[in-house]
Design a protein around this nucleic acid. Structure first.
Length: 743
DNA sequence: AATTATTGTCATTGT
DNA sequence: CCACAATGACAATAA
């Protein structure tokens, strides 16, 4: 049996969740062996590799869900040892026929799926409401859409499709062949129809209570129950990197549990055991802990809204009411909540359109339309797609897509200007701030404290990267060690600084401003530098006839006159001009009739210098002057070198500061992104919870009151329905445990 | 005339 | 100790 972990990675979860939601327990093995193409691709129509026929086949397959549970087994196509496909295709339901999403392969656009979803949902509930919902159900549009969303989430979160495709499908080539021959295959399903797995169809739920019933070991359990699906879903949340939830973080789920009095962190340990196989808990755990700690405050917010929505729904049409009410609830978070899990649902389409009119969303739409070119690029960066696809209404995406093409991950995205992403993400942030007051305040806090930087630096890297990208090479690799190409640094430094100096946050600004006056100076110097350093030794005589240098004793009678002579020389050029070009020391040397050049005096090695001196009979005054000239000359060069070094170090420091600021703002952006992701995940979980809870029916076919019951994750990984009082007790216990742990 | 940037020089320290 | 480099501080000069 495949391990659950593999299910995660293969993204089967959502699919299975769907099955579970409608009361079907599916043998994942069966699915895996069924030669079905990856659901994500099919459902989303994102893979051009699948033909219409294949989509059709899938649809047929999914149609199978419509049949009563007793017949459900029939649809399950599975593969016999010889590899031939066999299975039964029951009378095909038509529910999916309306779901253009499956047909046209437009995926999340949602435009095609605008119709019929909501009604389908309500009707379904009516039809099934009296019966134990989990037992039996149609695959409604909502379901499809939910799957869609979930898949997208997986995509967004980076769940590797490759894993899915390759790691567990050893017969892929075979499958591919068959896929390429989709119609035959589909026919095969329909016609063959003999072999059915029995174990798939453990349909529980004689009553609504049946729900919690099954709690076998997770690993070797053949069928995935709803509980497991929930858990799996959660397990996949950590950005698709199959990280595990830190124990303390299960509160996320518990927070998603709708209740008036906050259910207070349901057992974290309940969830943790189900992730024993999480592959790389290393950094992610830490990451999660950090993030979750940040998020703790927001959780309550989510809670309240959840409770609200849930309570709004009365009974049978609880879910329907959810869908309807959520957007209308005063708290904006519900909007994002819905978008999180149902963003591309056709039924939400209309809702969103109304929501767009709200100021925040209006802003978002404007934003997105302003930056159509980057929409593709966003996909590659973490969760950007998430937000554009889920967070924003489908229409927006569609409009974007019109200009920017399909929303598929774009390999070129990474090359896009990070700046735009920054802006977008920050704008997203700003938008989202409207959704969650707590979050907003938190973010405000951030931006107040150090995000004078982060806000502005969102632009500063932009300007930087753009300028750098045009001029030099290193643009977006923020932490690139300061490469000192002296040719570019001057310009780059100037640009970077001028932009940055405005963007530094206040504390840092002080230091930076202190530098600023000098900085321009340095920039100038740096411009001159290359040439300066080279020809200075020759040109140093040019303009400077500094006189203060003269040793008192060696004053030449001419020297005081020199300035006047110089002025005249400007008019009587030829000879005087040369005089003017000579340094004072040279003048003095000439006055003292030193028989060799100052250049020799200064630059000869000591030995040669001494030799030179020994060759001539020089007066004491001459020797003294020569020594002074040598000393001053050497010192002059030393000073120049020193200044150059100083300049270099300062410029390097500047660049380091820039890099660090860029890193900082980048980290801040990432933080914000994480926060957003977490929020959305919470909302998805919350939604899922509501959906599941809303479908539960007691013996009388009545929905459970969220006031009295709650879903709870048991320690063995299952999900059970328990009275609220009990849940609260356990929650308290759990809190205690956590506190103890922290201590 | 005042200010600023640049450069040279000196004194000092370190190598 | 010498020669010299490095550097801070000061001053002259140019712009």
């Amino acid at each position: 049996m495949l391990s659950l972990k593999k299910y995660f990675t293969e993204g089967l979860i959502q699919f299975t969740i769907l099955l579970s939601l409608i009361g079907v327990r599916v043998d994942v093995d069966t699915y895996l062996n069924s030669q079905l193409p990856p659901l994500r691709e099919i459902i989303l129509g994102q893979s051009s590799a699948y033909t219409q026929t294949q989509f059709h086949n899938l649809r047929n397959t999914l149609d199978g869900f419509q049949v009563p549970s007793t017949e459900v087994s029939a649809w399950l196509v599975h593969r016999d040892p010889e590899g031939s496909v066999s299975g039964t295709q029951p009378s095909a339901g038509i529910a999916l026929e309306n779901g253009g999403g499956l047909q046209d392969g437009n995926g999340p656009d949602g435009a095609v799926r605008e119709n019929g979803a909501e009604q389908g949902f309500g009707e379904e509930l009516e039809d099934l409401g009296a019966v134990a919902a989990p037992v039996n159900g149609d695959l409604t549009k909502e379901d499809i859409d939910l799957i869609d969303i979930l898949w997208r989430q997986d995509i967004d979160l980076g769940a590797g499709r490759e894993i899915f495709d390759y790691s567990h499908r050893q017969k892929e080539s075979e499958v591919d062949k068959e896929l390429s021959d989709g119609r035959e295959r589909g026919d095969g399903w329909r016609s063959a129809g003999g072999q059915v797995t029995n174990r798939n169809l453990l349909v529980d739920g004689e009553t609504g209570e049946s729900f919690p019933a099954q709690v076998p070991g997770v690993e070797d359990q053949t069928a995935l129950s709803l509980e497991e699906c929930l858990r799996l879903l959660e397990a996949t949340f950590p950005f698709g990197e199959n990280s595990e939830f830190p124990a303390a973080d299960v509160s996320t789920l518990s927070e998603a549990v709708p209740s008036e009095s906050r259910p207070a962190g349901i057992q974290s340990s309940l969830l943790s055991p189900l992730l024993p196989e999480a592959e790389s808990p290393f950094d992610l755990e830490q990451q999660w802990q950090d993030l979750m700690s940040i998020m703790e405050m927001q959780a309550m917010e989510v809670n309240s809204t959840t409770a609200e929505t849930l309570y709004n729904g009365t009974s049978g049409d609880l879910l329907t009411s959810n869908y309807n009410l959520a957007p209308n609830t005063p708290i904006n978070q519900n909007v994002s909540l819905h978008q999180a899990s149902l963003g591309s649902c056709s039924q939400d389409f209309s809702l969103f359109s109304s929501e767009i009119e709200s100021p925040s969303m209006g802003g978002s739409s404007a934003l997105l339309q302003l930056t159509p070119d980057n929409s593709t690029g966003l996909n590659t960066t973490f969760s950007s797609t998430n937000f554009s696809g889920i967070f924003f209404p489908p229409q927006l995406n569609s409009t974007v897509n019109e200009t920017a093409g399909p929303e598929l991950p774009d390999p070129l995205g990474g090359l896009l200007d990070e700046a735009m992403l920054d802006e977008i993400s920050l704008m997203d942030l700003a938008i989202e701030e409207g959704f969650n007051p707590v979050q907003a305040s938190q973010l405000e806090e951030e931006f107040d404290s150090d995000s004078g930087l982060s806000l502005d630096s969102g632009h500063s890297p932009a300007s930087l990267s753009s300028s750098e990208a045009s001029s030099s090479s290193s643009s977006s690799s923020s932490s690139s060690s300061s490469s000192s190409s002296s040719s570019s640094f001057s310009e780059e430094g100037a640009v970077g600084y001028s932009s940055d100096s405005e963007n530094v946050d206040f504390e840092e600004a002080e230091g930076a401003v202190g530098y600023q006056p000098e900085y321009s100076k340095f920039c100038r110097m740096s411009y001159q530098d290359p040439s300066q350093l080279h020809y200075l030794p020759y040109l140093e005589h040019v303009g400077h006839n500094h006189t203060y240098n003269m040793a008192p004793g060696t004053l030449d009678p001419e020297e005081p006159k020199l300035p006047s002579v110089g002025k005249k020389s400007s008019k009587e050029k030829p000879s005087e001009f040369l005089d003017k070009q000579m340094s004072r020391d040279e003048h003095r040397a000439r006055a003292m009739k030193i028989p060799f050049t100052n250049d020799k005096i200064i630059n000869l090695p000591v030995e040669e210098f001494n030799e030179l001196l020994s060759k001539y009979q020089l007066s004491e005054a001459q020797l003294s002057l020569i020594r002074d000239i040598r000393r001053r000359g050497k010192n002059k060069m030393a000073a120049q070198n020193c200044r150059k070094r100083k300049l270099d170090t300062i410029l390097n420091l500047e660049r380091d500061v820039e890099d660090l600021q860029r890193d900082k703002s980048k980290l801040l952006r990432e933080k914000v992104e994480f926060l957003k992701s977490i929020r959305q995940m919470k909302q998805k979980v919350q939604n899922l919870y509501q959906e599941v809870f809303g479908r539960l029916r007691d013996e009388n076919g009545q929905p459970y009151s969220p006031n009295q019951y709650a879903l709870q994750y048991a320690s063995d990984g299952s999900v059970i329905l328990i009275p609220r009082t009990l849940a609260d007790q356990q929650a308290r216990r759990q809190e205690r445990k956590q506190k103890d742990r922290r201590k």
